[in-house]
Design a protein around this nucleic acid. Structure first.
Lengths: 153, 153, 153, 153
DNA sequence: TTTT
DNA sequence: TTTT
């Protein structure tokens, strides 16, 4: 049966994206993103709670992230949860959960010389990874994942 | 700047899908869907509130809806809000808001002879509208919109 | 049965909020919000499509909107779809769909003298409508609906 | 600034809920939930990918889960991502990510003798944890978290 | 009517 | 007009 595995985040990057260029012309970007919640506790004191998320982007999307996003950038992210499980040397299960980003968009602050908010999604038909540089999406537009199904993730 | 316009619904169809075959080999399906909320009011009485939604599906997705969905079907829907505005004979603005479905999946009850729950999405690369019947998604899978950008909607 | 009726929007206000103070110490705010999508059509031309949404906020949330939001403000909104239906003088059904906001948060640009981004939600336990001004949420925090069930909406 | 940390899942439970009654009249339920995605790979073969999620529910919600949910139950879940980090005996960072459920609802198949679909949410004002048994939400309704802010999670 |  |  079909399931739904959807994550929606709004928050800020804790560091610049880390981008790796892999063999076979593939690119992956890893980002750390904070989402902060504020509320008043029983004593009426303001409490802030920050959750950190590991984001993973692939292909053209990763390159756009490298180009437009940096530490502090506020973004909207849509993706899905993926948990890696493996065994360490002691034979114990180890877990690491990340968000596979399907689309993102920059919020708020204008990029350096550029316009205002950016959105970078992985919108298949609309912005092919093979698109010429001039037609490439900017972070101000929704940047959608353009990857195929057989990539190693 | 990039925006987000996202709708997520879980509910039941009030009637069978209405499907129209248009010229140019295009298909559109219109569905009425109810989402029901239940809560207790100040007097502790249980109150039910039902909201009705007009759904619109195109192309292969519309055909899957016609084939698998019917009055009473429980579905999960993801889409976006679209409001049509026009002027009536009196020159007054008239409004009609519908949900342009981007993906859907059948929930719960198994279709007649078939497997378990269905999901029908509009997943571009994965399930092309041109796919052979045997490889067509069923309502038990996520059915995603496969339409192009230049269609009349 | 329980349904889901959820809307998530990111966009900008087309005008300042319109706030009405009703009898019985109730407040309602109406806002117009644009969500813009950009994509390339078949000819490779960039096309922009803007959808306009009618937002409705109540109570403390409405007051926060009045205080912090204005024309151009970029916000994240979570809410549900509500369609009003009535008959006009000709006896024809008239429809108007709005988004009943359950929580919102300001994005991007800092409010005038204030801190950073704002989020205003309707978070019941956390920020009661009866909270003293000093403990009131700002638009930089998530502002959640605090209303009761028996209000006229 | 205010952030958004939202998860939406539709899937099935891999086992009955595990419920623990804690001191101080607190209850916690842990559930394993699968979300399955199906797509065709480059060779046109149908591929299924299942992701497993650790859900955590508290208070009245946990009790409703214990009462109505079991292995195989199909549910809709809304929550937020929470990652626990600690150091193991080797001084290495260990991670475990779970979904703190804010609301859920049962989908599809009717519970044994009961009505149809269930939704169990954590809707504060509407269905207080202190509500009498007869007014308690069933899994067919949206079951919302009723917990306070100072609980240990 | 917003924003880029 | 669905569903419970």
């Amino acid at each position: 049966m079909a399931g739904v595995n959807k994550v929606i985040l709004v928050g800020n990057l804790g560091a610049d994206p880390e981008v790796k260029y892999l063999e076979g012309d593939n690119t992956v970007a890893n980002l750390r993103m904070a989402t902060t919640e504020a509320y008043k506790n029983r004593n009426g004191e303001r409490v802030e709670q920050t959750e950190w998320h590991d984001l993973e982007m692939w292909g053209a999307q990763a390159k756009i992230a490298e180009q437009y996003l940096k530490k502090g950038s506020q973004i909207y992210v849509e993706g899905k949860i993926k948990t890696d499980i493996w065994q360490d040397e002691q034979g114990q299960n180890r877990y690491r959960t990340k968000i596979r980003v399907l689309s993102f968009t920059m919020l708020g602050a204008k990029p350096d010389g550029a316009g205002n908010q950016n959105t970078a999604q992985q919108a298949p038909q609309q912005r092919p990874a093979s698109a010429a540089p001039t037609s490439a999406p900017k972070a101000q537009e929704m940047v959608t994942d353009t990857e195929d199904d057989d990539l190693p993730f």
